[in-house]
Amino acid sequence: MSDTIINLTNVITVLLLLVGAFFMLAGTIGFLRFPDFYSRMHATGKCDTLGEGLMLVALIVYGGATFVSVKILFLILFILLANPTSTHAIAKAAYDVGLEPWRKLDEEVAWLNTGDTGNSDESRAGEDGGEVR
């Protein structure tokens, strides 16, 4: 009977770890592939928070009701508070500096005119604004 309970705990842990790793890899692929800074932050800000929370919940399930689990619970609460706050701060700073959001028409027009992608133009404009500020 105890073997069954331990196996059930391990199976729940492995499932939560796999789902968390899936979300984390999806966020990383989105961070690599999306065309704009804001959409990259859309990918990382949610997927990393959720993947991390799921992996830490899996480790709480594996560890049981000990002092270590309370520490990981505080870690999850802090991450759930701090990660959206930092994401909002980065987005607000980028918007204040003047980084324009990506639009498909703008990128196509810039690509047709200059042979360059619109993304690098926007990033250069953002860097210039940063120097002015």
């Binding site: 800074f37 990259r40 990393d48 980065i90 700073a93 980084l99 993304n119 690098s120 990033s123 953002g126």
Partner: peptide, 15 residues
């Protein structure tokens, strides 16, 4: 490109 991608990369690697 840009400084903000680097900032958010540091944030992601830290988390």
């Amino acid at each position: 490109p840009g400084i903000f991608n680097r900032i958010i990369a540091v944030n992601v690697i830290g988390t």
